[in-house]
Design a protein around this nucleic acid. Structure first.
Length: 104
DNA sequence: GGACTGACCAACC
DNA sequence: AGGTTGGCCAGTC
C-alpha cells in the first residue's frame, strides 16, 4: 500500500537480516550469504549492500571467501574487532575460515 | 528511460 | 599456474 515504502522481500533486506544473525566469534563470506539466499552468484550485491553500511549491522563478520577483509579504509579496523570476538587469524593476516565459518 | 557501476566469486582457458 | 569474463540487485547519472 504505501508506494513510497520499501519491499521487505528485497535481496538487500535478506542480506541484512542474515548478517544480523551471525553469532559472535563466527564469520561468513560474501558468496556464502548469497548462496544461503538462493543467489549463488549475487556475491557482488552482498558487497554492495555492505557498502551502504547500515547502522546496527555487524558487517565486520563478513569477509571474503579467501578470509581476506575488505571495506576500504575500515578493513584494518574490522580485523581488530574480529580478534576481540575470538576469531582466529592466520599468519597471512586473514581469517581462519576453516575454523570460524558460520553455517546458517 | 537506458546504461554503468559496485566492499565479490567461481568457472573457463 | 594465472588472467579474464560472466552474473546478480539496487542505486545513480
Amino acid at each position: 500500500m504505501p508506494d513510497h515504502d520499501m519491499n521487505p522481500s528485497g535481496f538487500f533486506d535478506q542480506v541484512y537480516d542474515l548478517v544480523a544473525q551471525i553469532p559472535q566469534g563466527k564469520v561468513i563470506s560474501y558468496g556464502q550469504i548469497a548462496r544461503l539466499l538462493g543467489r549463488p552468484r549475487a556475491a557482488r550485491q552482498v558487497g554492495w549492500a555492505m557498502r551502504r553500511c547500515p547502522e546496527g549491522l555487524p558487517w565486520q563478520r563478513v569477509v571474503m571467501a579467501d578470509g581476506s577483509i575488505t571495506g576500504g579504509a575500515f578493513a584494518a579496523r574490522r580485523r581488530a574487532l574480529l580478534e576481540m570476538e575470538g576469531v582466529p587469524f592466520t599468519g597471512d593476516g586473514k581469517v581462519n575460515m576453516a575454523a570460524c565459518r558460520w553455517i546458517g
